[in-house]
Design a binder for these strands. Sequence first.
DNA 1: CTGTTAGCGCGTTCAG
DNA 2: CTGAACGCGCTAACAG
Lengths: 343, 343
Amino acid sequence: MKKGNPTIHEIARALNINSSTVSRALNDSSRVTQKTKEKVLAKAKELGYQRNLLASNLRRSRSNTIGVVVPRISRHFFSSTIAGIEEAAFSAGFNVIICQSLEALDREQRIVKNLIANRVDGILISVSMETTNSKHLEYFRDNGIPLVFFDRHCADMPDASKVLIDDRQAAYDAVTHLIGKGCRKIAHFSGPQELRIYKNRLKGYKEALRDNQITYNPKLVLTSKLMEADGYASAQKLLESSKDVDGIFAANDVSAIGAIKYLKKQGKQIPEDMAIVGFSNEPISEAIEPSLTTIDQSGFEIGKIACDLLVDNIRSRESTGIHNKTIFIDTTLIERGSTQKNG
Amino acid sequence: MKKGNPTIHEIARALNINSSTVSRALNDSSRVTQKTKEKVLAKAKELGYQRNLLASNLRRSRSNTIGVVVPRISRHFFSSTIAGIEEAAFSAGFNVIICQSLEALDREQRIVKNLIANRVDGILISVSMETTNSKHLEYFRDNGIPLVFFDRHCADMPDASKVLIDDRQAAYDAVTHLIGKGCRKIAHFSGPQELRIYKNRLKGYKEALRDNQITYNPKLVLTSKLMEADGYASAQKLLESSKDVDGIFAANDVSAIGAIKYLKKQGKQIPEDMAIVGFSNEPISEAIEPSLTTIDQSGFEIGKIACDLLVDNIRSRESTGIHNKTIFIDTTLIERGSTQKNG
DNA sequence: CTGTTAGCGCGTTCAG
DNA sequence: CTGAACGCGCTAACAG
């Protein structure tokens, strides 16, 4: 058993033809006879030839790879996004390098550097909570390498391609829903305002209040990193200071779950005296269903669409150039417990 | 702005030195003066030099990349495993290519082929439900490329490296736990017997029964693909035919959840007249907590350990050679609802 | 339709 | 300590 893999030269020598012909045959070029193709393919199989993409990529100076950067792989939203990306990339013939920033800017920077060194053909990114500027992403714009933001994007790259949900609208709908259920004192758990998505969700919250003649009270807006513990603490803080809060609009799912856990511990009947709405990514547990209405966003779909867009950009790069655009994904307001109420 | 990236030659020319020196400086070789190193590094930064890993990898004929194959990224167990792998790989300086087989053998074969073409330095794999033989993995053994199975492995590669949980023991513990709670008629939801893990879980089930003088009844073993719908259907089938089943040991979490959903729909008080134990990967919802005791396996830890082992194998490949071994990860029996009972 | 030539960008000899 | 030269495996360009 030889160590090194056989190369196109070895199969060329065995067939007494030139290695270029072998290369062309292997790539199913139209400029090779069917006959030689068959001979080459047969010999390749016989020798156990395995194409070396490293060499191929170097020569063509493309890596055939898409870089993906997410804050945390294990979060349900991102793992389903990745599933969608994988799906789209695989059928387009691209490999995918997945990296997680763990919400840290310095790590995100290192990752981006590594992706550049790997000469990725394009990059899909959902930025970390610490990412307030896009300096480390300039390279891609400067070198004409396609980049698509999804979900979390940078405010200072307005002209980049983005696949987003309409946060303002979704928040508006959520809060309107709460108001429709009779809530008047609605709190909002908000995230870092440097991130566009949280800013827009706050905006939608305010607009819904305004359109329903409810005075905006800044004290009802609690900003945090939106971890479960934050939601728990926020709910605690809220209920201890002013007891007349009757609704919560949480800017993500886990903080909403934190709030519910606190309320449950206090023995509150959540459906009765408190309505909660959150942006949902996680599969919401059934215990929470009766009280938590969610604005759902399909991670899989976002990933698939973002990757398709990126692949489009990669392919059109050489011909028509990159056309950046923003795609908005629909969200669905799911009122849980409604089936339970009926059943 | 130039199109192509600057190469070591350009920075060599700018400094009037040879490109080899630049290469060495960039790689922090001991055979270069500190002074030249500094000059090179400064010039590199100035020109915006970005090392081309494609070329580097081709030359060194290694890709610096680990291939990971899982059945489905969006499943919680695998996404946490991947998080662990990512973590370990990142700190060891490896990239990771993640691929999902979607439980299909033909897709798994294509993936493996692609990984080989990409000249991965090693591979981590949890095989699909359809994978009953390891023909497509022979290449790695034949070419001395490290391979580590985790969780789901191939029976016909006994000498490969593996990171597993002790399925037999865990199943034994789970069933013993049910018996301790007073169950005598315990059903088992089992998976494809071609997969070692399900075979071993069945084995543990049988042994626990035997050691407690309970006669094994094959009719209580329902084999399926263990989806949620399967669990639902199995529970239904079970309860409709023989009403005296008082315990279920499900070989995974989602099938257990399916069973619980069915029972709930029937208005059964699960904690009272039915005990359920399942292998847990998903974050189990609180609604289920009171009734579902789980055998928990930490995906993150399994991933991290598997990747560490693989990196070890990759590194020792050139020196001492690969030493295959199997590592068993501990599982934890978590009895949910116990806190609830106390509180 | 096929062969020849010349690199892609880097790392690694071997000299000096 | 540094320079010159070669080659990793493949493919683009140009011949024929």
